[in-house]
């Protein structure tokens, strides 16, 4: 029971982080048709900015300013990089963001070095909020949960209640309409891109000190975020939420329960004393295949239901 609750809690937490990344990514994709390969790099940038700012003025200002900075960087990237590439088509845009992800990783190494930086949980929250059956629940993790749920609620209110939000909503379901909305489309694109990056930036600020702030953090998380938006269905924020939670919980459950998969393979005639390649199957556990599962889901989803669980249109 403890294990279940514990991995549930961590799964939800990881899922909410993924959602913060995925919501920005799906927003950008739905509106602009650009699959931003560098999205997780903005998440990483958020963590590094937060580290740098909190070094001088502490965590709380960093929580506000780091995402804002990331948003500005994102908007600038859209304005001066992506917009000129737009006329070459979606493949060129995808290539641009792929190159960007690569370059951002290198630039971060150039500025902050190749080893992880000591971006720590703020001292004010670095205690056990409560202890239950011998397990500590860190206050910072609770704080992360509160922030991410807060962002989630704010995002939904923003989209449901504001004029811009309604426009985005219209664009999500009818992307071809964006052009005919009569607004200044390039400017909307720029700020959408910036806004999406800022969301990723927040995730970086609150997640960087738990997951570790290092140059490889983008490349490890980035593909998972793709999995989330594809499974959830492009253009669907609810889909993104559910898929993010599902992936987060699945990952944590698979690792903490670590069930042996041998009984399944045994049904197909694999023997316990098997040699060679079968040997790997004998020792396989859910924890071992946990890293494979999201991609298996991604591939299956793209093959059999390219619009995802809640999507209204294909990738």
């Amino acid at each position: 029971m403890e294990v279940f609750l514990f991995s549930m809690f961590n799964g939800v937490l990881y899922g909410m982080l993924l959602f913060m990344l995925a919501s920005g990514l799906t927003l950008i994709f739905s509106l602009m048709g650009v699959l931003n390969f560098a999205h997780a790099s903005f998440f990483m940038l958020g963590a590094y900015f937060a580290y740098q700012i909190s070094k001088y003025v502490g965590f709380w200002p960093a929580l506000v300013f780091a995402p804002l900075l990331v948003g500005v960087v994102g908007a600038a990237v859209e304005r001066y990089g992506l917009r000129p590439v737009h006329r070459f088509g979606h493949v060129a845009e995808l290539l641009f963001t792929f190159g960007l992800a690569f370059v951002m990783e290198e630039v971060i190494q150039m500025i902050w070095g190749k080893v992880p930086v000591p971006y720590d949980v703020p001292a004010a929250l670095n205690f056990a909020a409560f202890t239950w059956r011998g397990l500590d629940y860190s206050a910072y993790r609770l704080f992360m949960l509160v922030v991410s749920v807060g962002i989630f609620v704010a995002l939904f209110l923003f989209i449901a209640k504001t004029r811009v939000g309604l426009m985005i909503q219209a664009a999500l379901s009818h992307p071809q309409m964006v052009q005919s909305l009569g607004h200044d489309v390039p400017t909307i694109f720029m700020w959408t891109f910036g806004f999406g990056c800022a969301l990723a930036g927040i995730a970086g600020v609150i997640g960087g000190n738990v997951l570790g702030t290092e140059p490889a953090m983008a490349i490890t998380l980035g593909p998972i975020v793709f999995v989330v938006i594809v499974i959830g269905g492009l253009g669907s924020l609810w889909g993104a939420l559910i898929a993010a939670l599902f992936i987060g919980i699945m990952d944590n459950m698979a690792i903490s329960y670590d069930i042996a998969l041998f009984p399944i393979f045994a049904m197909f005639g694999v023997e316990r004393e098997a040699e060679g390649i079968m040997r790997d199957l004998v020792d396989l556990t859910t924890g071992g295949i946990a890293p494979v599962l999201p991609y298996l889901l991604l591939v299956l989803m793209l093959i059999f239901r390219p619009r995802g669980l809640f999507g209204t249109r294909d990738v």
Binding site: L35, H90, L94, F226, V230
Partner: peptide, 13 residues
Amino acid sequence: TTFAMISLGFAEM
């Protein structure tokens, strides 16, 4: 984009 994503999925897998 679908093709690109599937290829990424298989690569990561």
